[in-house]
Amino acid sequence: MNEKIEKTDAQWRAELNPEQYAVCRCSATERPFTGKYYDHHETGTYLCAACGAELFSSQAKYESGSGWPSYWQPIDANAVSEQEDASHGMRRVEVKCARCDSHLGHVFPDGPRPTGLRYCINSAALGFDAKE
C-alpha cells in the first residue's frame, strides 16, 4: 500500500466534484441503478476516485442486482479497511479506501463464492483504469 494520504476538508472539496465529496468524505450513498459503474463491463481496475489507489479488479465484479457495483473481493487485502457502521438504524460494515479513508460503500455476507462477500460500492467513489 502507498503512504497514507491526509488532506484538509478544504483540499478535498477543491479536488472532488460535489457528488464525489458527498460520498467519499461524508459517507453519502448514490441512488441505486444510477452510478456510472453499476452496469460497467470493461476489463481493468477500479480505483479510488479521491486518491487513485487500486481497489477492485474487474475480474471480481459481478451482477448482484443491488443497483451498485459489486465485487466479491478487493484487489488486495490491504486496499480497503472495514469498520462497523451503526448509522441509519442498521448494523453494517463500512468499507473505506485504506490509503485516504474515503467512504466507498459497505460489505455484506451475501455474495458469491469463493468469498461469500458482496462489496457494494458507490460509483461516485470509483475511477477506472481500462486494461488495453
Rank of each mutant, 00 (worst) to 15 (best):
A28E: 15
N122K: 14
H103F: 03
R113A: 14
E6G: 00
S66N: 08
A49P: 05
R91L: 11
R31Y: 03
S102P: 10
C97R: 09
R31M: 01
R13K: 15
K36R: 15
S66I: 05
A49D: 00
E63N: 14
E15S: 02
V80G: 00
G111M: 02
D110C: 06
D39Q: 08
T8D: 11
H103E: 05
E63H: 14
R31K: 14
M1R: 12
E6W: 00
G89C: 12
E54I: 01
G67C: 05
S27R: 13
T34C: 07
P74V: 12
H40P: 10
H106D: 05
A14F: 07
D85Y: 11
Y38M: 02
C24Y: 04
L16S: 01
D129H: 11
E15D: 11
F56W: 03
C51L: 09
Y62G: 10
L104W: 03
Y46F: 15
N17T: 04
P109S: 12
T8S: 15
A50L: 06
N2S: 09
G127P: 12
P18Q: 03
L55C: 04
Y71I: 07
F128C: 04
S87Q: 13
A86N: 14
E30A: 09
Q59C: 01
P112Q: 13
C97D: 06
T43F: 08
Q59M: 05
Y46G: 05
G105R: 12
P112G: 06
Y119H: 15
Q59W: 01
S27V: 08
T34L: 04
A125T: 10
E6Y: 04
V107A: 05
Y38R: 05
E82A: 13
H40D: 12
G52D: 01
C51G: 13
W68I: 11
A10C: 00
D110T: 12
E132C: 00
C26S: 11
A10G: 10
I121G: 01
D39M: 01
P32V: 02
E63K: 15
L117K: 15
T29N: 13
L126W: 10
H41F: 15
E15G: 04
E132Q: 00
F108G: 06
F128N: 06
S70C: 11
E132V: 05
A77G: 08
P112R: 13
F108I: 09
D101V: 12
G44F: 01
